[in-house]
Nucleic acid binder design. Sequence first.
DNA 1: CCGTTTGTTCCATTTTTCGGAACGTAGTCC
DNA 2: GGACTACGTTCCGAAAAATGGAACAAACGG
Lengths: 260, 260
Amino acid sequence: MSALTNAIDILRCFSTSRPDLSFADVQVLTGKPKSSTSRLLRSLRDCGLLEQDPHSRRYRPGLLTFELGRLHRAHDDLIATAERELRDVCARTGHTGYIAVLDGYQQVVLRIVPGSNPLRVVNPPGQRTPAIITSNGRAMLARLSDQEIRARVPLDYPKVPANSPQNFAELMARLNEIRRTGISDAADEAIEGVGSQGFALASGESGELIGIAVSYSVQATTEIERANVRRELGAMAAKLRRMTGDPLGQTIEQLTGLAS
Amino acid sequence: MSALTNAIDILRCFSTSRPDLSFADVQVLTGKPKSSTSRLLRSLRDCGLLEQDPHSRRYRPGLLTFELGRLHRAHDDLIATAERELRDVCARTGHTGYIAVLDGYQQVVLRIVPGSNPLRVVNPPGQRTPAIITSNGRAMLARLSDQEIRARVPLDYPKVPANSPQNFAELMARLNEIRRTGISDAADEAIEGVGSQGFALASGESGELIGIAVSYSVQATTEIERANVRRELGAMAAKLRRMTGDPLGQTIEQLTGLAS
DNA sequence: CCGTTTGTTCCATTTTTCGGAACGTAGTCC
DNA sequence: GGACTACGTTCCGAAAAATGGAACAAACGG
């Protein structure tokens, strides 16, 4: 196991729920010996990937990650284009919009478009969530080949909320449904009382894949309003697919010519 | 030279002016053999620190840097406190506010508060600039011991704009001036026609040091207006120093008990 | 079809890393 | 004060990984 791998393992211990860690935290989370942890933490700190609070002695992501993170304008064309359209939809509907990407079987929130409705933003940018329990997460999975999906979802199917697909067969059933309709939805899954609808957008040019979703309170919306959201999303999807050359019906593997 | 060091050297090649790099770019910038560059780039890509555009094959900071960068809310208390106050000042004066930190002899922009005046934001967050040519950069330097300043500024004094201190002696003269008045200013240095005033804020508790500045068009402001900015900044500095327990007059080294 | 550019793979040598154990350093309890 | 514990760092021989020159491969251009 390379030094870089170990370093990354440490960096991956940090998350929105654990924005800073003590030496002991890191040691427990990585399961590495004290000596290795000590050396690596020092290296990471010295190179700017981590910072150490002078008083609490806890570690947190460093200045370098801030700088690099700013540069990750990330797939800029695709995302910026999608964000513009999403803003329009959110302005019209008042709901909150999300743009996310897939990483393994998790999704990571990239952009948020706050809505005017009083539903607080629950997933800040950078937030990781299992893709199988969100509307746009499943929409993205649906664009992968069955083989690729199988490879990404852990063999030991994770414990998920009651409304989410409870096993691999249920998941595939939902993904096939999404493949038919082009739109994905969720209700009371990741967060109680919150529903969302979303779709996946692939760039025909770069083969990038993003998920776009609109999120709302289930209680505070009527079936009619949700149908309206579906219509808005459908129109947005159609427009974006035209703009980005998304060859709907092709898996990402077919687009890029290789498995990721 | 450790693998991690080499990896960091590659990451540090990316900047706002070079947000993505080709294999050849990296090879030239790092001066490493092709084989090493190839292996390292692959590792960095595989672990998520870099991404590779499927078509242009160019590299850019990856999803992991985005996630970690989000977590670097960084020195949150100090910066958030300062940012709140800065917002007030910027709202009143209409000018653009900056918060930055020192890294070596460069400063890195952390936060921007756009003003209402039509001066476009020129330094996005993450931007690096030599601290010796900005008002808040010099303000931060002025809070270091002379020995520490000497250690940070390159022996081969860099080429700087005409209005900036042209050599180490001139720099020290200006820093001593800042130490006397508590406020730093700049005009027509980093950017032609742009002036700024700033000060440094140290947290008495954590020993962190940030620079706070307000920036404006030299042509579009009168001497009276600039005096007003100075007054606003002075008041803000006094208030923040009280709030954060900044022991003005002490160097950062005295605060943290060690050289950084 | 050949030269160029660009990038990857191979492999013997050199250099790091690894991790158990010994060694500090505080803080705490009695 | 002294023993105890939590927390980290340093040491060092064994083991693993990085290194970089060279051969190899692929894409491009003329």
